[in-house]
Nucleic acid binder design. Structure first.
Length: 258
DNA sequence: AATGCAAACAACCGCCTATTG
DNA sequence: ACAATAGGCGGTTGTTTGCAT
């Protein structure tokens, strides 16, 4: 398409290109992406420039392991929103939609598929699955990380001190509304926002997903620092993690030994 | 040391929606 | 009302990295 038509450069960005793009954004600000390649002196298409900035060069981007809180939030938001990566990422300070999507695809989705298959096999083998422990979910609160807006320069991905509906969304269905961070808000607005998110997350809190997120997080840490023994991990934990797949309103611990 | 493989992640592609003239 | 354009998103692919053999 446009890339082919213009014969622009593709593939991995060089340090020089990064430098030029960064300088350009610092000088002219974000937006007007069609003008960026020309302004920056880059032989890249507008989309490539935008993506590179949003996913890699933008300040405050957090890299490295996802925290347990983040994994927890991702799972519950995904349950609620589906593959709306940008919306999910919007609730994770410093994380990009691409990061979240990659994390989901590499750490969570595979896990779900593997567990689904194992469960199928177990059913076929007529292994008895019994509930051995029921733990009622505790009331949830946000960690401070998610409810503070530390300074004026905080980017829009931080959870808000207050949330105001983005005017851009006025023509969209309310379920798709996104929120932007402002620093000139009242306490009532902040409380309302926190209530809204609490209600939303409460609605998704089923099936022991907190336990599941812990397992994913622990696995993520292990895999990030040690051997990638995924299959072994699955064997050890899928009887607990598998509760994600159920619809019961309990934290189910199953006994696969029959 | 060389090779193969899988995981992780960066980047591209195609499509959709909003905006503008 | 319509077409052209830009911004944005999700799915997919390509590349890099690190481990096992």
């Amino acid at each position: 398409m446009e890339n082919k038509a213009l014969g622009v450069r593709k593939g991995t960005w060089t340090k020089e290109e990064d430098f030029l793009l960064k300088k350009c954004i610092e000088k002219y600000g974000e937006g007007k992406w069609h003008q960026v390649p020309l302004r920056a002196g880059l032989n890249r298409c507008r989309k490539s420039c935008r993506l590179r900035w949003l996913n890699y060069l933008r300040p405050n981007i957090k890299r490295g392991c996802f925290t347990k809180d983040e994994v927890d939030l991702i799972i519950r938001l995904h349950k609620l929103l589906g593959n709306k990566w940008s919306l999910i990422a919007g609730r994770l300070p410093g994380r990009t939609a691409n990061d979240v999507k990659n994390f989901w695809n590499t750490h969570i989705e595979k896990k779900l598929v593997a567990i689904g298959q194992r469960r199928k096999e177990n059913v076929q083998k007529s292994i008895t699955i019994t509930n051995t422990k029921i733990i009622k979910p505790r009331p949830r609160t946000f960690s401070k990380l998610y409810i503070t807006c530390p300074n004026e320069t905080t980017n829009a991905h931080n959870l808000p001190n207050s949330c105001v509906e983005n005017p851009k969304n006025k023509q969209q269905p309310s379920s798709n509304a996104t929120f932007t961070c402002t620093t000139s808000s009242s306490k009532e607005e902040a409380d309302e926002c926190i209530r809204w998110w609490n209600d939303l997350l409460e609605a998704t809190e089923i099936n022991g997903e907190l336990g599941a997120s812990t397992l994913i997080w622990e696995n993520h840490k292990t895999l990030s620092s040690g051997p990638r023994d995924v299959d072994n991990y699955i064997t050890q934990s899928d009887h607990q993690f598998g509760s994600l797949l159920d619809d019961a309103n309990v934290w189910e611990t199953v006994n696969l030994d029959g």
